[in-house]
């Protein structure tokens, strides 16, 4: 119940943002929403089930290209976005069936390779996808402010749906099964958890929202090319955000998304040539000093306080 209240309050406050009328702020807020979607998507498979997936960029790019190609064929906007999500889910089911039996490093690499394969397929089919030349999307007839507001609300709506889904999954049998798999997959299997099925469902959840986010992103920026939407950083940033906020938590990915975007924006503005190195510095510092995320700090404090109170009694 508390989670729902936090989610509704947070989304409500963000939804008031267009009243300020600042298009730059709107762009940042749209990015935050997109990062929340990507981070929460990764959290389904990476945080809950403990499977280090690097396939997020694949789902994102597949969603972007599916919707862009369909829009080029005259499919309406919202239907093409839905199709982007659907394509990502179907792809995740096919690929998941093949690679979810791998564990640890092997799964990480196999998921990374699926992204490379998708990128190569797009690169080598220029008739459909434009290949390395990229693909232009139909430009929408609306003012700059309308454009910014429309995409902000679209992205926010998907982020809300994704978060709502996360709250439901965390409480559900699926979330419980995924956590069991993370702790000890063999034991979970013996106790009757159909690990393969639940992993595949978790992988599907991590695909659908990332696919839709990719589709919206494509319409938002009007032009996509393979190195842009199949960028390995799109796979890595969600992982960094979730680590920042806290693995397997509901609001950790949101906190991580805010921190990462704020940091990125600051670095982009001040030191453009070394922004990749700056991201590297955060990652290294994070892994060495704060492996359980920012939320773990507050939790530790609360835990200590509770323990102290208990001793008094």
């Amino acid at each position: 119940m508390k989670n729902w209240l936090i989610l509704l309050a947070g989304t409500g406050v963000l939804a008031l943002l267009p009243l300020l009328g600042d298009n730059y702020l709107m762009r940042l807020a749209t990015m935050v929403a997109m990062y929340v979607i990507l981070a929460q998507s990764w959290n389904f498979i990476g945080g809950l089930a403990g499977y280090p997936s690097f396939a997020t960029a694949g789902f994102f790019g597949l969603g972007a290209y599916t919707s862009a190609v369909l829009q080029g064929m005259g499919v309406p906007l919202f239907a093409s976005w839905g199709a982007g999500g659907l394509a990502a889910v179907i792809f995740s089911a096919l690929v998941g069936g093949a690679i979810l039996h791998l564990r640890g490093h092997y799964f990480a690499i196999a998921s990374l390779v699926t992204v490379e394969v998708l990128r190569e397929i797009v690169n080598t089919t220029p008739d459909i996808t434009g290949g390395g030349m990229g693909l232009n999307l139909p430009i929408m007839r609306m003012t700059v402010a309308e454009h910014a507001t429309f995409f902000f609300y679209s992205m926010l709506a998907v982020a809300f749906a994704c978060m709502a889904c996360a709250i439901v999954v965390h409480k559900s049998k699926l979330g419980f099964a995924l956590r069991c798999i993370q702790q000890n997959e063999d034991a979970a299997n013996i106790l009757g958890v159909n690990a393969y099925l639940y992993k595949t469902i978790g992988f599907g959840f991590s695909a659908v929202f990332a696919g839709i986010a990719g589709a919206i992103y494509a319409s938002w920026v009007h032009y996509i090319e393979p190195p842009d939407v199949f960028d390995v950083l799109i796979s890595v940033k969600p992982l960094v955000m979730v680590l920042l906020g806290g693995l397997g938590t509901i609001f950790g990915p949101v906190i991580g998304a805010f921190i990462l975007l704020t940091f990125e924006e600051f670095v982009w503005r001040t030191f453009l040539t070394v922004h990749a190195a700056a991201l590297g510095v955060i990652i290294v510092a994070l892994v060495l000093f704060l492996p359980n995320g920012v939320l773990s700090l507050t939790r530790e404090k609360l835990g200590l306080r509770r323990r102290a109170a208990g001793e008094k009694r």
């Binding site: 990476g46 403990g50 280090p52 640890g104 490093h105 990480a108 890595v236 992982l239 960094v240 680590l243 040539t273 070394v274 990749a276 190195a277 991201l279 590297g280 510095v281 955060i282 990652i283 290294v284 994070l286 892994v287 060495l288 492996p291």
Partner: peptide
């Protein structure tokens, strides 16, 4: 696994960017 992989990824971003500059 995830932690060491992420660490070397972060180090790679730093070293590769330094070489690029």
């Amino acid at each position: 696994v995830l932690i060491t992989l992420t660490l070397t990824f972060g180090l790679d971003l730093m070293l590769n960017n330094a070489m690029l500059v």
